[in-house]
């Protein structure tokens, strides 16, 4: 379980996160939906200890982040985290060198799944394929949680389809996922929990399936309601 409690963060005078609290459970896909503005990426960065927070607390399975956390929580930012000059196999070797939770078997399986090649040089790949390498490097860790930042943003439709398939595959299995998006329609039926974020605060967090059952509303309906308010 990842618990984000009353997190605050400003850049200079600009408050990016004003009071953010939500919980992402293992075995569920939690989606941070931000219609406009920043904040989603900052939350993920903060969970990973990549940017300091000004207030509040973030707990992962009840504990604060330590270096061991990086074996258990995989982060997939929106740009690739390896050197452009590397080939995929170099990136594999790098991951294998440092992470005990690196699962080479799954990495190779993902390589086939995404139709990539070990010899491919990272900076020669298309944007969609780069995102796939990025996903691959995160998913191949035997991590309990996976955080993905806008995995669908700015890539071609076929890559999107492939990436969508990841969510329903055994590659996610019982792990907890936090994904950010500004376009919920893409994954409307894939997620368990929706967290709507705007101007640094959480407008609403809910289970869409429950809202559909109890109020007969779609995620977009809820979005429209809370944003208009």
């Amino acid at each position: 379980m990842i618990e984000v409690k009353n997190v605050k963060k400003s850049y200079g005078r600009k408050a990016v996160l004003r009071d953010i609290s939500f919980t992402a459970k293992k075995g569920e896909i939690t989606c941070l939906i931000g219609v406009n503005g920043v904040g989603k990426t900052t939350i993920l960065n903060a969970i990973m200890g990549l940017t300091p927070i000004d207030g509040g607390e973030i707990l992962i399975d009840g504990k604060k982040l330590t270096k061991e956390t990086y074996e258990k929580v995989a982060y997939i930012p929106d740009s690739i985290t390896m050197l452009p000059s590397m080939r995929i196999k170099d990136a594999f070797a790098f991951m294998n060198d440092f992470y005990t939770s690196w699962n080479e078997k799954r990495a190779n399986e993902l390589l086939t799944f995404f139709k990539l090649n070990l010899e491919d040089k990272i900076n020669s790949l298309s944007k969609g394929n780069k995102m796939k390498v990025n996903l691959l490097l995160g998913l191949a860790l035997d991590a309990d949680f996976i955080l993905m930042d806008e995995p669908f943003s700015g890539i071609d439709v076929f890559s999107r389809e492939q990436i969508t398939k990841v969510f329903t595959s055994h590659l996610i299995e019982d792990r907890g996922v936090i994904i950010t998006t500004h376009d919920i329609q893409e994954i409307e039926h894939l997620i368990d929990q929706a967290v709507i974020l705007d101007n640094g605060i959480i407008l609403k967090s809910f289970y869409p399936e429950k809202i559909r059952e109890e109020e007969g509303k779609s995620i977009i309906d809820v979005l429209r309601e809370v944003i208009d308010r």
């Binding site: 740009s79 992470y99 900076n123």
Partner: peptide, 16 residues
């Protein structure tokens, strides 16, 4: 760099 390697470095499961 265009590909931000610092993410990876800071996320290594080792002392920074």
């Amino acid at each position: 760099a265009r590909n931000t390697f610092i993410y990876r470095l800071l996320m290594l499961p080792t002392s920074r």
